[in-house]
C-alpha cells in the first residue's frame, strides 16, 4: 500500500523516505506523488536532463565523432588546396570508405573483406586481351628469427595484383637473400605496398602468423 500524495509532499528527504519504507513501497503512484513535490520534481528533471546530455555526449564521442574524424575532409587534409574551386566536385573519402568493412589501420578499411564480400567490384582489366591470373597457394617463410613464421597467401595478393609485379623482379622461386625486416621497413619487397597502400608494418602478426610446432 502506498501513502497519499499529501503525505508524500510532506516528506522532506527523498532518501529518508526510500530508506524508511524500503524501496518496495516507493513504487508506482508513490513516485508520481514524489515527482509532484516541486523540490523533488525539480531535482528529478535536472537528473534526467543531465543523463540525456551525458548520454548524448558519450554517444557522440564514441559513435559519431570518430567516423567524422577518421577520414579528413579534403579541404582540411593538408594536401588539397582549399583555394581550388573544383575541390567540391571531388568525392570525400569518408563518403565511401565509411560504407566498407572497417579496419583500424591504413584507410580504416579491410580491403580484402570489401572485395571478397562484394562491397566493391573493381575491374581486373582494361584491354579485352589481357589475361587475368590468380593463384590460391600459401608460401610459408621459416627464416624469421625468433618471431612466428610468415604465411604469404597468394590468393588476396593475386586478387589485386598480377604475378609480374613481384615475379621475378622482386621474388624468384626459393629463398630471397635480401628479404629482411630492415629492407621491408626501408620500402623494399613487401614494404613497397605494406606501409603505403596495404596494411602497415605495425601489423606484425598479420604476416608473422604461423607458430612453429
Amino acid at each position: 500500500m502506498g501513502m497519499g500524495c499529501a503525505q508524500a509532499a510532506q516528506a522532506t528527504h527523498l532518501a529518508e523516505m526510500i530508506f524508511r519504507r524500503k524501496t518496495k513501497a516507493v513504487m508506482g503512484s508513490d513516485i508520481v506523488c514524489l515527482l509532484r513535490n516541486r523540490r523533488v520534481g525539480r531535482w528529478a528533471a535536472l537528473l534526467v536532463a543531465a543523463s540525456v546530455i551525458g548520454a548524448g555526449v558519450a554517444w557522440g564521442g564514441t559513435v559519431v565523432a570518430p567516423v567524422k574524424n577518421v577520414w579528413a575532409a579534403l579541404i582540411s587534409d593538408g594536401l588539397h588546396d582549399p583555394a581550388n574551386p573544383d575541390i567540391s566536385l571531388l568525392q570525400e573519402p569518408g563518403d565511401s570508405l565509411s560504407k566498407l568493412p572497417q579496419d583500424y589501420v591504413g584507410n580504416k578499411v579491410n580491403w580484402d573483406q570489401a572485395l571478397n564480400e562484394g562491397y566493391i567490384d573493381p575491374r581486373s582489366k582494361l584491354q579485352p586481351q589481357t589475361r587475368v591470373r590468380t593463384l590460391d597457394q600459401d608460401t610459408i617463410m621459416k627464416n624469421t628469427g625468433g618471431t612466428p613464421w610468415v604465411r604469404f597467401p597468394h590468393r588476396p595478393h593475386t586478387a589485386w595484383l598480377d604475378c609480374t609485379t613481384c615475379h621475378d623482379s622482386m621474388f624468384k622461386e626459393g629463398p630471397t637473400p635480401g628479404l629482411t625486416m630492415l629492407a621491408i621497413l626501408n620500402g623494399q619487397y613487401c614494404g613497397k605496398c605494406h606501409g603505403t597502400v596495404a596494411f602497415p608494418l605495425s601489423e606484425c602478426n598479420r604476416c608473422h602468423s604461423v607458430i612453429p610446432k
Binding site: L79, H80, D81, N84, Q91, P93, S96, L97, N107, V109, W111, I120, P122, R123, S124, K125, L126, Q127, T130, V132, A159, W160, L161, D162, T164, T165, K192, C193, V197
Partner: peptide, 27 residues
C-alpha cells in the same frame, strides 16, 4: 597545382593490376 592521386578512390573501381601491370605504373 600539384596532382593528388587518391589510391582509395581508384582501388574501389580498379584492381592494382590494371594500372600497375596493364598501364605500366611503377610502384
Amino acid at each position: 597545382r600539384p596532382v593528388i592521386f587518391p589510391h582509395w578512390f581508384h582501388r574501389e573501381r580498379f584492381r592494382c593490376k590494371v594500372c600497375h601491370t596493364e598501364l605500366g605504373f611503377k610502384l
